[in-house]
C-alpha cells in the first residue's frame, strides 16, 4: 500500500465558465483509501472542483494526476473505469428500472456489443444490496422518492468499481439513517478496497466526523486544508461563511460539532 501512487494530485488548478473564473490556484492531494471533504459556501467552486477531477469540464488549466498519470493521458472509457462521479442533480429521461441504471455503471467495463455478463450482474446486485436498494431493483426510477433516487445513482457509482469516487453532496435528500449509512459504506470501501473519496458537503458535522481531511474553500481559493479539527475552527468558519459559528465537542462521543451561533432573540 505504501508504494501506491497518490490517488489524485492536483496543482495550480484554475477553471471557469465563459468569462468567469471559478477556481484559482487550487492544489491538493488525496491518498489511496483517504476521504477528502470539500466544504465552503454556495458558489465557492466545490462542484467545479469535482468536475475538473472527473475530466468533464471543458476549460481548465493546471495539472491533475490520477493514480500517478496525467488525467489527459486517459481515454474516456479508461477514465470512467478509474473515476466515478455522482452529481447533485441526476436527471433521467425515459423509464429505466433501478437495476438498468445501476448496470449503466458497468458500461465502461463492457464491450460495445456485449450484454452485461453474470459477473456484471453480480456486481450490480452487490451494489444494490450494499446501498439497501435490492428490493426496489425492478422499479422505475421515476417512481422513487428523492432520497431513494439519490441512492440509485450512488449504487451506480459503486457498480463502476472506481479507484476514486467524486461525490457532490452525497447526503443531500437523505434522511439521518440513510445519510449515516452512505457515509459509513464509503468509509468501509476506502478501508477495504483503498478507494479514495472526494466529496462536497454542506453538513460540516458530517465532514468533521467522516473525512480524513477537509478543504475549506471560498471564492475558488483554498482557505484551509488539513485535519477537520485544524480546519473547522471558529476563526476560519467565520471568515468563510461570514457568520458567527459555535465549534465544540459532542459530550458523549468527543466528535467535533459545528453549529450556527444564532443571534439572541
Amino acid at each position: 500500500m505504501s508504494a501506491a501512487p497518490t490517488a489524485v494530485r492536483a496543482s495550480g488548478l484554475a477553471a471557469g465558465y465563459g468569462g468567469t473564473q471559478v477556481l484559482h490556484e487550487v492544489s491538493f492531494e488525496v491518498a489511496p483509501g483517504e476521504i477528502l471533504a470539500i466544504v465552503g459556501p454556495n458558489g465557492a467552486g466545490k462542484s467545479t472542483l469535482l468536475k475538473v477531477a472527473a475530466g468533464t469540464l471543458r476549460s481548465w488549466s493546471g495539472e491533475i494526476d490520477l493514480l500517478g498519470r496525467a488525467i489527459g493521458s486517459y481515454d474516456r472509457r479508461e477514465l470512467a473505469r478509474a473515476v466515478a462521479m455522482v452529481s447533485q442533480e441526476n436527471p433521467l429521461a425515459f423509464r429505466f428500472t433501478v437495476l438498468e441504471i445501476v448496470l449503466m455503471g458497468r458500461a465502461p467495463h463492457v464491450g460495445a456489443f456485449h450484454f452485461e455478463s453474470p459477473r456484471d450482474l453480480e456486481i450490480a446486485r452487490r451494489a444494490l444490496e450494499r446501498i439497501g436498494l435490492l428490493p426496489l431493483a425492478d422499479r422505475h426510477v421515476q417512481e422513487l422518492s428523492g432520497g431513494e433516487r439519490k441512492r440509485v445513482f450512488l449504487a451506480r457509482a459503486l457498480a463502476q468499481e472506481p479507484r476514486v469516487a467524486l461525490l457532490d453532496e452525497p447526503t443531500a435528500f437523505l434522511d439521518l439513517k440513510h445519510a449515516a449509512e452512505i457515509l459509513m459504506l464509503f468509509r468501509e470501501l476506502c478501508t477495504s478496497e483503498a478507494m479514495s473519496v472526494i466529496a462536497t458537503l454542506h453538513d460540516l458535522n458530517a465532514a468533521a466526523v467522516w473525512a480524513d481531511r477537509v478543504i475549506l474553500i471560498k471564492h475558488g481559493t483554498i482557505i484551509g486544508c488539513g485535519r477537520p479539527d485544524e480546519v473547522l475552527t471558529p476563526q476560519n468558519l467565520r471568515e468563510v461563511y461570514e457568520t458567527e459559528v459555535y465549534v465544540g465537542r459532542n459530550p458523549s462521543t468527543g466528535a467535533l460539532i459545528v453549529l450556527p451561533a444564532a443571534p439572541p432573540r
Binding site: 468536475k51 468533464t56 466515478a84 436527471p91 463502476q160
Partner: peptide, 8 residues
Amino acid sequence: EAAAELGV
C-alpha cells in the same frame, strides 16, 4: 455530463 463521465 453523466454520459461523458461513463465514457461516452
